[in-house]
Write a protein that binds this DNA or RNA. Structure first.
Lengths: 201, 201
DNA sequence: GTCTATACAATGATAGAC
DNA sequence: GTCTATCATTGTATAGAC
């Protein structure tokens, strides 16, 4: 620890993390073999135990590393413009962030929607709650200001969540991505028209 | 074969299929062990090989059996009422059908969104295409009749697909189901307001 | 810190008795 | 048709040399 340049140890560690993301995102936790991760990283099996203690330790380190980037998206978001603008801007920025880390997105999907208890516990749910609360607040502000109809704000949040969910799914799909930034903007406009108190021109 | 009542053979077969749905839907294909399926069905391991040839044969038989029910939903749908009514009616009927076969829904989710190639190939995609074509046609009819705005019909289809996708996800989630028939109806109304050519009263 | 070699458990599949 | 017993393979994890 504490050397000026990257020593052999941290190089091995980084290579293991990169290969772990690659293999875990392809096969999930249970079906991925640490033998394959060791081979892919061009190190050996005991290196995993030296650096991370166990298969689960490697997995936890990987999750922590990538997850914080999505957390900070909410914290650093600038609340300016109309509710419609704010919602669109945030969802688009989230979409662009997801597009830059598709392998991790795939891993999250496998963990979330794959067999329960097939992966070690990791608190994804608290992030989801934070996201939904963030979104609901923006929507309720839009209702309060008269920009949106006084329909059920939870329903509206559910709809936007379904959209970002499906957009993430599209990013993960290998063949024929259907969504891009422009399409997502159109989709959000169509949906926000359903929220709007007055008809869009 | 061809006995008047259920003979021991078909009883064993049915028990194996029931246990297979239970275990596969909990653990996915790769992580499920046929030993556990044999135990759960209170038969033995070689029975699986006698009736289905292999682990994959058991899986294929299970998928075929449950999948046809969802196929027939489209074929038997009565096309009456406005575009809005037809879309709502079809999505709700699909939702109710899903709610009656949640274990299979979980299995489909694990297969679709889990690790690729961790399960034997089964053509789910052709069903999805059929579903989307079915939906697009209803929407385009609504545009043609002037009931919906002349916005992008593919975007509208994508939105409805995202909704049924998220509703399925909600059905699969163990704790705190958020959606029910009433909420789904409200959600569809809010979304269809965004499609509508005139403002709803 | 990194390697070779290996212990140990669990899996899919099969042989052969009944 | 159903069982007990067993094989070959693969998985996580570790011991010990360097």
């Amino acid at each position: 620890m504490g050397s000026r340049k990257k020593d052999q140890s941290s190089v091995t560690r980084d290579r293991l993390l990169n290969s772990a993301l690659k293999i875990f995102s392809q096969k999930g936790f249970a079906s991925a073999s640490i033998r394959e991760i060791a081979e892919d990283s061009r190190t050996t099996l005991p290196s995993i135990y030296y650096h991370f203690g166990s298969k689960e330790g490697l997995y936890q380190a990987l999750m922590r590393e990538h997850f914080s980037a999505f957390e900070s998206l909410m914290d650093e978001f600038k609340q300016t413009g109309s509710a419609r603008e704010r919602i669109k801007s945030y969802i688009i920025s989230m979409y662009l962030r997801m597009a830059r880390d598709v392998d991790f997105l795939r891993l999250m999907r496998i963990i979330s929607y794959g067999p329960p208890q097939s992966a070690p516990p990791f608190d994804i749910e608290s992030y989801r709650r934070k996201f939904r609360k963030f979104l609901t607040t923006m929507i309720k502000n839009g209702v309060k200001s008269g920009e949106f109809r006084s329909a059920n704000a939870d329903d509206m949040t559910w709809i936007i969540s379904a959209v970002i969910h499906a957009a993430a799914e599209d990013l993960c799909s290998i063949p024929g991505k259907e969504v891009d930034k422009k399409k997502l903007e159109r989709i959000l406009d169509t949906i926000l028209d359903g929220f709007s108190a007055v008809k869009r021109p």
